[in-house]
Structures are given as C-alpha cells and as structure tokens.
Design a protein around this nucleic acid. Sequence first.
RNA 1: GCACCCGUAGUGAAAUGGAUAUCACAACAGUCUUCGGAACUGUCGUUGGGGGUUCGAAUCCCUCCGGGUGCACCA
Length: 430
Amino acid sequence: MTNAIGESIARIFEYSGAKTIRANYQGDVGPHVAKAIWGILHAGVPFAGKSALWIGEQYARGSDAYENDPAAKEEIDSINKKVYDKSDEEVNTVYDWGKQVTLDAFEEIYKLLGTKFNHYFFESEMAPIGMEIVKENTPKVFEDSDGAIVFHAENHDPKLHTRVFVTSKGLPTYETKELGLTVTKFEKENPDTSIIVTAIEQGEYMKVVQKAVSLINPDYESRMKHVTHGMMKFASGKMSSRKGNVVTGESLLNDSMELIHEKVKGRELSQEEKDAIAKIVGVAAVKYSILRSSLMGDIIYDFEKSISFEGDSGPYLQYTAVRAGSILKKAQAEGIVPGFAKAPSEATVLEHMLYQFPEIVVYTHETLEPHHVATYLIELASAFNTFYGNTQIVNKEDIHAPYRVALVQAFRETMKNGLYLLGIETPEKM
RNA sequence: GCACCCGUAGUGAAAUGGAUAUCACAACAGUCUUCGGAACUGUCGUUGGGGGUUCGAAUCCCUCCGGGUGCACCA
C-alpha cells in the first residue's frame, strides 16, 4: 500500500519535471527480527531451502511465544542484542540467510509492482549513524532519563510528547534510526524535497523526530514532508484467510491475478499473453483500489467490487484504453489518417476533459494526493464512452472521421499517461 | 483521560466564504446488439447533530456525537 502511494507520487513528480530518487527503508534489525530468528531456531527442522513464507510462520510463532512464554521472551531479548552486536555465530548464520531470502521475496514483489529503487537503506546501517548524532547532541537536544536517552519534544511544542531515542540497555530505537536515515539521505542526494510515505501510526512520532531534526539541522527539516495514509480494511468476510483476518499485500495480488486468469480464460490468446494480462490487470485492480481514495482515512477494500471490474476500477480504465486502441487499428486498416484539420462545429465533453489533464497533474503534484488523477481518469473514461456510444468514428464517407480518429488517439495517450501516474500499465490486448 | 487526523447520496470523490452543493460508480427503469456489451439513455439520492460569526458556511469558530491513530525504552 505504501509502495503504491510512494510510486505514484514519485511518478507525478517525475512527470512534473523533477529528478526523482526512490529510496526503500527496511527493518532488518529489531525485536521483530529476533522473534523470527527464535522461531527458526526452534522450528525443529533445518532452514536451508525454506521460503519467505516459512519465515513468516516462524515469526508468528516467535511473536506468540514472546507474549505467552517468559523464558522465550528472555531468550528473544538476548537474540535481539546479539543481532545488533553480531556476537553469536549461530544467530549470525540464521540472520544472514533469512535476510537474503526475505529481500529476494520483496524484490520480486517490487518488480511485479513496477518499482525500481535507487537506494536501499537498512535500519542496521542507520542505527550507528543515528547513535552518533544522538551522542553529539546530548545534552544539547537529548537528555538522560532513567538510564535512557530521551527527547523532550513537549518543551518545544506543547502538542508533542517525550520519546525515547536510546533505551536503557543502550539500544537505539526507531527514532534514532530515522534520524540517521534523514541525515544519510540528505548527505547522499541533497534533495530539494524529501517525501516520506508511511502509515498514519507513524504520524505522531515522526513529528517528534522532525522537531529533533529541526534543532540539529533546520535546513533539512524544512525540506521534509511526511505523507501518511490509513489502513486497509476489508468489506466482507470473504478474503484469503490464511491467518485470520490478516491479508498480506502479496496474497491480495495473487488472488487478484488468479481471478483475472479466470476472466480471460475463454479469450483467444496465447498462454503467455494471458499470464502477462493477469499480471498487469491484477496489479491495476489492487493499485486502483488503493489510489482512488484520499490518503487520510482507512481504505475499505471490497474484494467483490475489485473483481467485478464494472465501472469504478482499474481494469475498466485499461479496457477503455484497449478498446480505443482497437478502434485506431481499424481506422488504420481503412486508410483513415488522423488529423485535426476538419473539426465538427461543436466540441464534446471529451475535448474539455482532455484539455484538463495538465491541470490535474499540477494539482496532484501540489496536494500530493494521487486520488485526483484516479477520479479524473474515471470521468475521462466516462466521457469517452459517451462519445464512443453516440458517434460512428471509423467511417470513410464522413469528412470528420480524421478528426474523430485523432481524438481517439489523444484519449488513448492521455489515459495511458494517467494510468502510468498511478503506477498502472496499459496492455495492448485484454 | 489527553493529543492528532477524519466525517459530503449505498460507495469513492469535487466545490479561493458566493448562485439551485457537482462528478463518477452502484441501484432502479429503458435502448440498442455497432468500431471489442466491460456499451448507451434516463431516474433515484448527499454536507453527522446543535449553536455562533457573516449579506452569504460543506468551507471559519465553539460544542456534542461517530470513526481512526498515537501517548517512554516496539517498529
């Protein structure tokens, strides 16, 4: 979800002429990793050859044990420390293996989604950098409190609160790592604007971190923008319920692609074409469902609706573009050369809509709200369908035919560009 | 409890404080079977409640209600 939003925002900036750098920040250290390692060590079977999914299961067991088994909790805490200082050979081996498998799995999903990152930052790398910054700025910014190092943000803004940056055990928290990340990003690329996309839970703590940054380096802070989004919820009980009501992005994509496969089963296409279409359309269904809504507030993912493909959906937009494409093919076969020379006396809504596209992009760029593009595209598709339904386009006898074909061409290009901004590909056939 | 975000038709959105609150989807009722029917036409329906500021409020202020999120060693 964060990926869909981040990628769309990146593309909108690119389209607006900005040089855009995509960075991915991954949590490769911390208690969640320790829980997974504990699970792997206690799995009773060797880990060699196991999948990322299997690691997920081990994490679930570790997480459960952490809550219910005091002995396990102690062990996991000790593993956590070992992960940071790399003092235990066995832990190191499991760690290195698990990290690679997990990263490979993520990379596959990014590829499917169409995101290419310029930088991969890891929490393990940011931790020492952040620690250094905290040390340098204590007691100027940070203070000692009960053995931990904290930042009293409420002293600078009454709306904020105190947060721990280094625990009493001497381990850096997420805040410190984020501090390290911020400085690293600015030193590496020195961007005019740094946009951070996270879920809303991070909203409050990010304000505290930003306040701390403003005291250390006000220049960086003024260029940071935090975009938050709500959670994804599900409309009905019908969903892939491998682990209760937790649905991963991956399983959502898989289910979606599977359903597209069902839909195109009867079409006269090769197996490779069907596979490609299932991917492109399946991703579109999921991405559109996310990006059609405003970022704030939760997104209700209605699986029934996203698979029906009627009306307000990504596949519907793709379909409209594809159909425009086949009209163009037919026009070409009939020897009609598109041109704007002879226009009918009255313009339709379609022309007005096409004309608005650049404004919509500018507006979206300013507001950082991709849903404006989504709303525009669905209206554009509707305008095109009205035009298409009421007008004979390919007709050699008609002197307006070249103009109409040119209009269809313009529509197809605009739809394609708009979908691109949402991170959605337009297939040739479907 | 405190803080932050949000509340516009069934759903997703629009509206520098300005005219009768728009658009799309869904639903319902029709049309036609054409360039790919995943179509076209029409109908239905909305500012959470209550105060206030204003000539004028979806928009600003107060309050209540509802939803979400966060409040010290998790990320």
